[in-house]
Design a protein around this nucleic acid. Structure first.
Lengths: 244, 244
DNA sequence: AGAAGGACCAGTGGTCCGTA
DNA sequence: AGAAGGACCAGTGGTCCGTA
């Protein structure tokens, strides 16, 4: 077992960030330039200019009927390959991961405001950060969504090659987002097994991941798998007292 | 300004801990051996054995009337010198600081239980730790008290000499605990001023202090003093644009 | 009066489940 | 059916204020 993998892995996933939008939607309410890059998200804001959305894909306009003012959700995610732009009323996974980078930018802003004011400074993406993001116009960011896919982003950060391979495989098989999301757990547990099962320090050792809470289910899977592994190694004879 | 003081200071305060009671009241409900060492705290527990309290000081027994079962508070703190045992129905400051060490022990236990179970592991003394302490029989530990005196403990950790000198001075002057407690802020702010005003990293750099939340008032004082200092340095001419 | 701590409260982490 | 997210809830950090 290679216990040094983490140092190498922690460098990955970082180059993926689109540099040009680092201050983007931050504090301005602007949509940023990401649509032009990957054409993912297209949530309407109040007062959005027509023609600004869907820069690359020029289809449909049947947004449920009413013009302005109607309750509008983000388009659902679909499994896309790295670099692939989602067509139709869908968002791709590059866009999903981009949302995590945006949250990081918002956190950094909240932190610098807090420091300036001499207030408590959050180290994680907290409710306060989500509130700030919303106020800054990023209404497409919300806590349940971000928490739902954290472990997918974790895999993208920790082993981008494995993450990319998984995306391609699930796209090819025509699996839905839920199936892909479920499948992201397994390679993460495998990474944890090589790192002494300490999923918290794996998150904390990675600068972009450290700001996210470890998802409960991932923590539980690592724990269960660790116990299963130690039980089987006890049976196959580790020199310990045998439990029977 | 010596910016390396913290490294030297962070070694202080540590030798003060009575080693022999490291697992003490932990998980057992026992009172531990600290009374024999410093004869501070003497809170009655339900079912406490008579004659166990006040090992060194054999006076009064007028505990308000009823025998067992009456609601009983801790004796109030008085300003004592280092090593001095509080007489009468009082507790000394060595005992106060000892409570912080006990909380640390309880936190360490909560942490190892959490790790064993694969649950979230607290890095600070949280409500969970106070609940655990109470369940373990340390009913004399409570959140409002510990939070009230955190900055006094901080001074004890970061500059034991200054802390000791302050205790001696306030005892000599016959000041009460409240006055001593107020006076602990000033030397802490002075330490912060030498460390770039970052009270959070000062706490975090000290292993025994890092587990305590920075008190709001201390944070505010550091912030206010930083602003005052930068304003006065702007006036006395630091090469900046002059604000008038 | 000075001080200890039960108990409250606003805002948190966490995620369910009514919605589209 | 699969998925997005408003809104709820138990337990938190913080400390006030009725108590002794």
């Amino acid at each position: 077992n290679n216990t040094n993998t983490l140092d190498a892995l922690s460098q990955e996933g970082l180059s993926e960030e689109p540099v040009q939008q680092d201050k983007e939607a931050a504090g301005s309410g602007g949509r940023g330039t990401w649509e032009a890059v990957a054409a993912g998200e297209r949530k309407k804001q109040s007062g959005r200019k027509k023609g600004q959305r869907k820069v690359d894909d020029l289809d449909d306009d049947d947004e449920g009927g009413g013009a302005d003012g109607e309750r509008q959700r983000e388009h659902p995610f679909i499994v896309t390959e790295p670099g692939e732009v989602a067509r139709g009323k869908k968002n791709g996974l590059d866009y999903l991961f981009h949302l995590y980078e945006q949250c990081r930018d918002f956190l950094i802003q909240v932190q610098s405001i807090a420091k300036e004011r001499g207030e408590k400074c959050p180290t994680k993406v907290t409710n306060q950060v989500f509130r700030y993001a919303k106020k800054a116009g990023a209404s497409y960011i919300n806590k349940p969504k971000m928490r739902h896919y954290v472990h997918c982003y974790a895999l993208h950060c920790l082993d981008e090659d494995a993450s990319n391979a998984l995306r391609r495989a699930f796209k090819e098989r025509g699996e839905n987002v839920g199936a892909w999301r479920q499948a992201c757990y397994k390679p993460l547990v495998a990474i944890a097994s090589r790192q002494g099962w300490d999923i918290d320090s794996i998150f904390n050792a990675h600068p972009r991941l450290a700001i996210w809470y470890v998802p409960t289910k991932l923590r539980q899977l690592c724990h269960a798998e660790r116990n299963a592994a130690s039980a089987s190694s006890a049976v196959s004879g580790g020199g310990h007292h045998l439990p029977f």
